[in-house]
Amino acid sequence: MMKKTLSGFFYIIIGASQFLSCRNANIISHLKLNVSSQYCAPTIAYTYNPEFIPYSNTDSILVNSKTLLGKLSEHDVLMANATGTLSLINKLLESKKDTTINGRLNRLEISNKIQNHLHLLTTEISGIAAELDCEGERADLFAGYLDDLNDKKTARLTGASIVIAALATVAAVMVNNHGLQNGITISGGIISAGLAVLTIKPHGKKMSYTHERNVLEDIWFAPEKSAIYPPFIWYMLKEKKFSNSKQEPLVQTVKNRWNKFELDKDIDSTTINVLFKNGGIYDADKLHTRATMLNQLQSTIRSINQDMQSLISELNNLNADK
């Protein structure tokens, strides 16, 4: 009986040792969850009317808009440029000088064109915000899936640690040889401790997750033109006068927050490629980080609605003036 117990214990020790020596974390493809890499991307490619592309030289715009600055704030003049309606608003002001029927009809036509375009831009804000929300939810979904798998592994490690410690105690009691008792106790303690250490920092499962259209990429690298964000939104993200500090653009303040709170200012090229390019191997922590950054960016994009509200309100007042 004693020999069988000892034999069984040593088999457990050997099995646990092999388990501990296994360093290969299983990598799961996101396709296993039936979620494609383009799940959140627009179904069609958008085109933008060149008539409404904003001008990039902000200082020149303000210098050449002295008449309009008497009617609108500097912020709303820049918003008019961002929305591509600056020339139309100037035409609206000019049309007010003509009080004939034709003049009023022309004024109404210009006003409708402005309002229709501003309405289109609000859908652009909603569309990008929806994509960011979708991407954030997807990253959270994957992170939760890995967390669940890793929690189950931790539970198994804890259970194995308890069983090995108990078996080592029983086996040591049943052995008369003092040296063998010590060997069993030490071996059982080492394996049990090793399993306990793994519960503190488990070598968890990871996920192969690619994203051909990475909505974080342009925010991190800040190119002159964006292939993802509409010209209106990209202009606002790149123009420092739309930030609260007026010292750096929104795209930079977002990146600064990521560096300080999510990335701890310590990020290597591998992490940059995973988070801000085509993706790669994610662990649960990186997926949680990605989800948080997406949610922060979504809030910034949605805040553009406040700037739109200011412009629309001022245009309504301008149009009402006799």
Rank of each mutant, 00 (worst) to 15 (best):
M1Q: 09
K3W: 15
K4S: 08
L6V: 02
F9D: 01
Y11P: 00
I13A: 08
I14G: 01
G15M: 07
Q18K: 06
L20E: 03
N24K: 13
N24M: 10
S29N: 15
S29C: 06
H30S: 14
L31P: 00
L31A: 12
K32S: 13
L33D: 04
V35N: 09
V35E: 11
S36W: 02
Y39S: 15
A41P: 01
Y46A: 14
Y46V: 01
T47P: 01
E51C: 02
E51G: 00
Y55C: 09
L62C: 02
N64S: 09
N64Q: 12
N64A: 06
S65Q: 07
S65M: 03
G70R: 07
L72W: 01
V77P: 02
L86I: 10
I89S: 01
L93A: 01
E94G: 00
S95Y: 05
K96G: 05
K97M: 10
D98L: 09
D98G: 07
D98F: 14
T100Q: 12
T100G: 11
R107G: 02
K113L: 12
L118T: 10
L120M: 09
L121D: 05
T122S: 14
T123P: 00
T123Q: 04
I125G: 05
S126Y: 08
S126I: 01
A130K: 12
E131K: 12
L132D: 04
D133A: 13
E135M: 13
Y145E: 06
L146C: 06
D147I: 03
R156M: 07
L157W: 03
S161C: 06
V163P: 03
V163M: 08
A165F: 13
A165N: 14
A166Y: 13
A166D: 11
L167K: 08
T169N: 13
A171Q: 11
V173L: 12
L180H: 06
Q181N: 08
Q181S: 07
I184V: 06
T185K: 11
I190V: 15
S192K: 07
V197N: 12
V197E: 13
T199Y: 02
M207R: 01
R213E: 13
F221H: 14
E224H: 10
E224D: 14
P230F: 06
P231C: 12
F232D: 15
Y235P: 01
K238D: 08
E239N: 15
S245E: 14
V251R: 10
V254K: 02
N256F: 05
D264K: 11
I267K: 03
S269G: 00
V274F: 02
L275F: 14
K277H: 07
K277S: 13
K277A: 10
N278G: 11
N278D: 09
G280V: 01
A291I: 00
T292Y: 11
M293K: 10
Q296W: 05
L297I: 07
Q298F: 02
I301W: 05
I301R: 08
Q306G: 03
D307S: 15
M308I: 09
S310H: 15
L311N: 04
L311Y: 05
E314M: 04
L318C: 06
A320I: 03
A320K: 10
D321M: 15
K322T: 07
